[in-house]
Nucleic acid binder design. Structure first.
Lengths: 227, 227
DNA sequence: ACCTGAACACCGTTCAAGT
DNA sequence: ACCTGAACACCGTTCAAGT
């Protein structure tokens, strides 16, 4: 992972051949691919083509495909503007997570990469700090505040993940939808409530309920919910 | 998807050559691979070897790798025993989701496959039905009960996903951990609370806080929490 | 220091053919 | 009906070499 000095190609510009590509070129091209076509479109070979070199040249700048993904994440983090946050602690927490979920939803590839129990980059820590601060202000201990942050992060990652893969599913299997058929032929003895819901299930689960769930979770986590 | 009649190889046993493998053989072998080595270990070629045929023979039984994954999910769903559920609605909801999260955590490959906004198989609907029923009993409208189920499912999927990828990260990058280093060198001006937490962050986030978050979420979602 | 070509060890899937 | 062999169009990465 840290075998390759990340700055070697930047600092040590003294001798040798002039570089034809830079790490920034690579990251920019990778971002273009990934923003337009999702993570599946990003291969080392394809990226090399886009950037105008051979696949092998890339390994001079990134050591690994995984390392490239980390660079991508950092690049995005720098790009997302920080939100203005309200002073009421409860409202502030809600604003932080609504902001995060909106930001990440615009870049679906992020959810496929993420895989970390905290927002790793320096940029990401901004949101953690604000959440923990607000939770303490609202009356939690530091330890409870960390737990609060984690619960909210779990909920948010889950919502984005599921919403994303539901969207992808709808893309692939075009029309009638296995799920709808299933709900139409449900045994009312075994599943009385679901059978009663019937076709309404589809429309109900298509609604965006992130915010309501978020507020419920915050209410449950904070000592008291102000009027 | 439904291009291939799924029962053709089972029902139409009249003419032709006797089968050397069955779909059950295939699913069983795939389960072995995936339980032991995770989803990454499962390739059509590898599976064919394990089952004693060529990769192409598999396509007689499964049409697609994706179709195989669905069979895998259904196989697991049949295997998981249904839990005994308490009569108090709030406790019942908590029991349902604790059960689901325990079951899924034992089979990490499930989280990589999942990608659906409801537990698709008939088996999975058992848990949805119970949750919705309990939520209505607790005083929610059917619509609110569906939202309640979804919020809990988001939280649970997020928790499993993140916990899983944190575990995988710890496997790969062995020792000192980038995160810990970061928390050691945090600017206390910019991140006062996180800097104060310092090395405690690692131990705090290593704790299993699923249940506490679950209860908070249920409290926030249900009309009133009984004593 | 920067880049290339050839090669290794893989993928999922299609297609035409065999029994 | 069930299965095979060869092939297509890909992967990420290593290694030795070129300028």
């Amino acid at each position: 992972m840290n075998a390759k000095q990340t700055s070697s190609t930047v600092r040590g510009r003294a001798a040798g051949r002039p570089a034809r590509v830079s790490r920034d070129d690579i990251v920019r091209a990778a971002r273009r691919i990934v923003d337009d076509e999702g993570l599946a479109g990003l291969t080392m070979r394809r990226l090399a083509g886009e950037v105008g070199t051979t696949p092998m040249a890339l390994y001079h700048y990134v050591s690994d495909k995984d390392a490239l993904l980390v660079l991508l994440l950092e690049d995005l983090a720098r790009e997302i503007p920080r939100p203005r946050l309200p002073s009421d602690p409860r409202q502030r927490i809600i604003a932080v997570f609504r902001h995060l979920r909106t930001a990440f939803s615009s870049f679906p590839w992020v959810t496929e990469v993420i895989g970390t129990d905290d927002l790793m980059s320096e940029e990401g820590l901004f949101y953690v700090e604000r959440t923990v601060a607000a939770a303490i202000e609202a009356g939690l201990t530091p330890r409870q505040a960390v737990d609060c942050y984690r619960a909210l992060w779990y909920y948010t990652v889950g919502e984005i993940t599921i919403r994303r893969s539901a969207a992808r599913r709808d893309e692939v299997r075009a029309a009638p939808n296995l799920r709808d058929q299933m709900f139409a032929h449900l045994d009312p003895e075994q599943y009385p409530h679901l059978a009663a819901l019937g076709p309404r299930w589809a429309e109900l689960t298509a609604r965006d309920t992130y915010r309501a769930g978020l507020e419920a979770l915050v209410d449950g986590l904070l000592p008291t919910a102000p009027g």
